[in-house]
Design a protein around this nucleic acid. Structure first.
Lengths: 165, 165
DNA sequence: GGAACGGCGTTATAGTATAACATACATGAC
DNA sequence: GTCATGTATGTTATACTATAACGCCGTTCC
């Protein structure tokens, strides 16, 4: 039998978690996915993905650019945007529209719903995979005769950890 | 008794509708709302609102700026952004994050859910007021201990009318 | 070899948004 | 009356975000 629809996940990063492991996992998954697809995860693209994964906060393209330049590498805006376009096309990163920023996808290569809970206090964005939200959207769109191509669901507020403080 | 929670509405504009009426209604509602709140709907703010309501498509700030200049008025980016900030604060317009653009709110002053169906073919954006979608989001956020401050739900795709063509 | 392609460098420019300071006008205090 | 205050707008400059266009280089394939 084939794998069933993936279960909802909500990877709220613990504040004390070993983030190096997050990065390593993400890079390994990206290598594997690109290899399987015959796509080239070049050194530049890999580095940009690593920078997007620097934390669980969405990162702006120009923040990435500054770091690339700090690497000693020659870089201009298209350097970053082209790499991001590739990573977006491969589903390795998501764009956060309400912040004009980018964040790593914690489970690339798998079909999943995508919603974000964005804490305006600490900046952390958690990716949800809530089929119920998508279902609700699907139903309404269907009633309107609207064919969905893409969804943007970004909820801003205060995360549990910040609220506790 | 007090007025109950407003019913879901979804004002899909008919292609042949009398849009002048939409504009007139929106401006009248804005006048009324601002008067009730003691806020000043100045000539500039009124004009910007009118321009946002030029159609049912989200409008960019610089599109508005160009038209204001065409009016013979002196205008610079802050002219437009300040007016838009006011209109946003009063709930008279919404910002469409995925387009960096603005659209008039069809029922200002009433509590309502806000989602957009954005047709990538004709550019029309329809505002939904679907409590079910918000409910689904609320539930998931609550389970995560997340306190919601604002929601962005923007669905892009093809509207019924464009699909028919 | 050389044509075709993908990835990246480089320069320039387009598009979106805000900071900071100046001006104008209305209102109310004295 | 005029002075202080507050709000709205004018004005200039700049920051931030994104893409167009062209060229170079290396690989692959014939």
């Amino acid at each position: 039998m084939t794998t069933a629809r993936p279960k909802p996940r909500a990877g709220a990063p613990k504040s004390g978690h070993n983030h190096r492991a997050c990065i390593a996992t993400a890079l390994a998954a990206a290598e594997k996915l690109c290899a399987a697809r015959g796509e080239q995860l070049t050194a530049l693209r890999r580095r940009v993905l690593e920078l997007v994964w620097a934390g669980h906060k969405p990162v702006g393209a120009y923040q990435i650019l500054d770091i690339l330049r700090g690497d000693g590498r020659s870089a201009a805006p298209p350097t970053v945007y082209r790499a991001l376009d590739f990573l977006l096309a491969q589903g390795l990163v998501h764009r956060v529209e309400s912040l004009n920023a980018f964040i790593g996808c914690p489970h690339p290569g798998e079909t999943h719903a995508t919603q974000f809970l964005i804490c305006s206090r600490c900046g952390t964005a958690v990716e949800l995979d809530d089929a119920g939200i998508d279902k609700a959207i699907d139903g309404t769109a269907a009633r309107m005769g609207f064919v969905i191509a893409a969804r943007t669901v970004e909820i801003s507020g205060t995360c549990a950890e910040c609220r506790g403080r």
